[in-house]
């Protein structure tokens, strides 16, 4: 879905900086990250481990692990600034307006309570409904996410469910209060291949049905390709490229994205060798001057080593942070 031009975006992140103070100086885990999520849109957030994709999600919902903190930047949810809210107010936004699905379903579910107790509590915390009504809603939700015999199984404890079923319960829990945005952090990574596809389908369908936007954080380009409308590529805490998923996957512009796409073996490719990006992502205390990718980039030139590229608009809703696409300097 293309962003609707007249409406303000549902979520707007502006120049987000997340820092970790350590005794050897402050580490910048996210460095001026800006992006929007429109109503009903699925934004994929990809990157390799340590790129900062999970941190972005944690910063938005105000659950950064100390000593990590938002050092600067702004986060707006439907025109309301949420990065500086008091803890109590933020807690009400979490769950009510922003739902969460994490990688390991066991950490999102309390093993001591039945699924019914957890769902009903969530519904009644955020909505003014009777116990009976909440239960009916909970059963309907479980049924919707594909749990067979939901009316009976709702009184089971989380450990009675298999991994895939548990993740379905978590999705139901995340959507119980009808949030506007769902942040899903590696929702399928802990699951078997044959179950992953089912979970992605459920998540995608139910969010579309309810008009909830999704921020899908994953390292799996395949999942993004099948699910997201737009995709943001993170590298060393900075946005490398953002744009419609088809454009980014089929015609990546940033050299990092190009390398990333080439390095993924697929079921259709025939090359004997995979494209490989030399080296690995730098540690946070060793990010290069200028463009963070320049030491590994085959196109790097003088400017890349001196000056950090900002996101450059490329038309068709695409943005790339790379000096190769700077129109004022066409001498490349």
């Amino acid at each position: 879905m293309a962003p609707l031009p007249n409406k303000p975006p549902l979520l707007s992140v502006r120049d987000l900086v997340v820092e970790f103070p350590t005794r050897r100086g402050t580490l910048r885990a996210l460095d001026k990250v800006s992006f929007d999520i429109s109503e009903g849109e699925v934004l994929g957030m990809v990157g390799e481990s340590g790129a900062g994709k999970s941190l972005t999600g944690a910063a938005i919902i105000g659950l950064l692990e100390p000593p990590g903190r938002v050092a600067s930047g702004e986060i707006w949810l439907r025109g309301e600034r949420i990065d500086n809210l008091p803890r109590e107010k933020m807690r009400r936004i979490r769950g009510r307006r922003i739902g969460m699905v994490f990688q390991d379903p066991l950490t999102s579910l309390n093993p001591l309570y039945t699924v019914a107790e957890q769902l009903i509590e969530t519904i009644r915390t955020h909505m003014d409904v009777s116990e009976k009504e909440a239960r009916a809603r909970a059963v309907a939700l479980l049924d919707r996410v594909g749990i067979p015999a939901a009316a009976r199984r709702i009184d089971d404890y989380p450990h009675h469910f298999s991994g895939g079923m548990r993740q379905r319960v978590v999705i139901a829990l995340a959507l119980a209060a009808e949030p506007e945005l769902v942040i899903a952090d590696e929702p399928t990574t802990a699951l078997d291949v044959s179950v992953q596809a089912q979970i992605i389908d459920v998540l995608k369908e139910i969010c579309a049905e309810r008009g909830a936007s999704v921020m899908l954080i994953t390292h799996d380009m395949g999942v993004i390709a099948e699910t997201a409308d737009r995709v943001a590529v993170l590298y060393a805490g900075r946005l490398a490229e953002i744009g419609p998923v088809r454009d980014v996957i089929q015609a990546a512009e940033h050299p990092y994205t190009v390398g990333l796409m080439g390095s993924i073996p697929t079921l259709t490719q025939t090359a004997e060798r995979l494209t490989q990006i030399p080296g690995s992502m730098p540690r946070l205390n060793a990010i290069a001057q200028g463009c963070a990718f320049n030491p590994r980039c085959t196109h790097a030139f003088e400017r890349c080593r001196a000056e950090r590229p900002e996101l450059i608009a490329r038309g068709g809703d695409r943005q790339v942070a790379c000096w190769l696409y700077d129109t004022e300097a066409q001498d490349v």
């Binding site: 291949v193 044959s194 179950v195 992953q196 596809a197 089912q198 992605i200 389908d201 799996d220 380009m221 395949g222 999942v223 390709a225 099948e226 998923v245 088809r246 996957i249 089929q250 993924i264 697929t266 079921l267 259709t268």
Partner: peptide, 15 residues
């Protein structure tokens, strides 16, 4: 079940 990176629009048999 393998996600389709080629965006061929292939509709997967639901697993």
């Amino acid at each position: 079940a393998v996600p389709d990176l080629a965006l061929s629009g292939r509709r997967r048999t639901p697993v």
